[in-house]
């Protein structure tokens, strides 16, 4: 198995977020005026959502969160475009070792913003269809087409150089198209909240089962990226959530931390354990951490949406 490095910039998106928060700090400062959001007594009529002042304040928090999350999407798509160009170049040039090394780490940028990417119904299948997703006669392009070629199963006939070049070119073009389109996508608190839930659903149905990366077995990279994306979405909404349902906010922080700790047990210097090296027991443990987060996360949208 080739070793696949973790993206050097894994923590970077978090920093981006912090910077953005600082840049748009007015409503956050306002939150400070309200006192400790976890102590409604000190903060006054926080629970009373009908007060116009509180409504306006909450809306401010949600708007800030939405801006932060939009910036995150932009940042991730930028990195995705850069990474995909490098991957595609190596793949098209026949440098399989380099391409394999870039595969999982680059895909993490995609997996972090998957619900946004999936909202473009035509691009998602072109970029991310697994072989099992295809309908008869459908042309197979995108990441998993390259995956099978780079991590070939026994008896597989490799693609010819020209075919590889076509796949690579298409991959870059579709990714650039995606990045372009995300610039104009209208985000809102409920979309972000639902996106967080969808990311975790992805983990529960595809990553924790090892179905996403059936040849490279790099499912835990995707897993981590989905969790990153869900967590970022959650954190964008957290200031508002702390006003409306601090208990839920606390529960979610704890469950995210527990899941992250569970995942960390499988991180190696170069990245993560391969899915096919995990024991049944380890997979079960991860699955129950995902379920533990999934139930409360499903309540996020209705808790914050105005």
């Amino acid at each position: 198995m080739p070793s696949i490095p973790l993206p050097k910039n894994a923590p970077r998106f978090r920093k981006t977020l912090a910077l953005l928060a600082a840049a748009t700090a007015v409503p956050l400062a306002l939150a400070g005026c309200m006192g400790n959001p976890k102590d409604p007594g000190a903060a006054g009529p926080i629970q009373v959502t009908s007060s116009p002042a509180v409504d306006a304040h909450l809306q401010g928090l949600l708007d800030t969160g939405t801006r932060q999350y939009s910036a995150f999407v932009v940042d991730q798509t930028d990195q995705l475009v850069t990474g995909t160009r490098a991957f595609a170049a190596a793949y098209a040039a026949g440098d399989a070792t380099k391409a394999r090394g870039l595969y999982a780490a680059t895909r993490m940028h995609w997996e972090r913003i998957e619900p946004v990417a999936e909202s473009f119904g035509d691009l998602d299948p072109k970029l991310d269809a697994r072989e099992a997703d295809l309908e008869p006669g459908q042309e197979w392009t995108g990441w998993h087409r390259a995956e099978k070629d780079l991590f070939p199963p026994a008896g597989y006939t490799p693609l010819a150089p020209a075919e590889r070049a076509t796949i690579a070119t298409q991959l870059v073009a579709d990714t650039e198209d995606l990045a372009q389109r995300t610039r104009t996508v209208e985000l809102s608190a409920d979309k972000i909240g639902n996106g967080a839930k969808e990311l975790l659903d992805e983990v529960a149905t595809g990553k924790v089962t090892g179905e996403e990366e059936i040849w490279s077995h790099t499912d835990l990279w995707d897993f981590q990226a989905n969790v990153d994306g869900a967590r970022t979405a959650f954190e964008s909404l957290l200031p508002a959530l702390q006003q409306k349902d601090p208990d839920l906010g606390e529960a979610l922080e704890a469950k995210f931390a527990a899941l992250q700790a569970g995942l960390k047990q499988h991180s190696t210097g170069a990245g993560f354990a391969y899915y096919n090296d995990l024991s049944q027991d380890q997979v079960q443990q991860l699955a129950s951490l995902v379920d533990a987060l999934g139930e409360p996360l499903a309540k996020l949208t209705s808790a914050v949406a105005p």
């Binding site: 533990a292 987060l293 139930e295």
Partner: peptide, 9 residues
């Protein structure tokens, strides 16, 4: 089972 997620599996 649903109520138990987080405590049980």
């Amino acid at each position: 089972a649903r109520i138990g997620f987080g405590q049980t599996r």
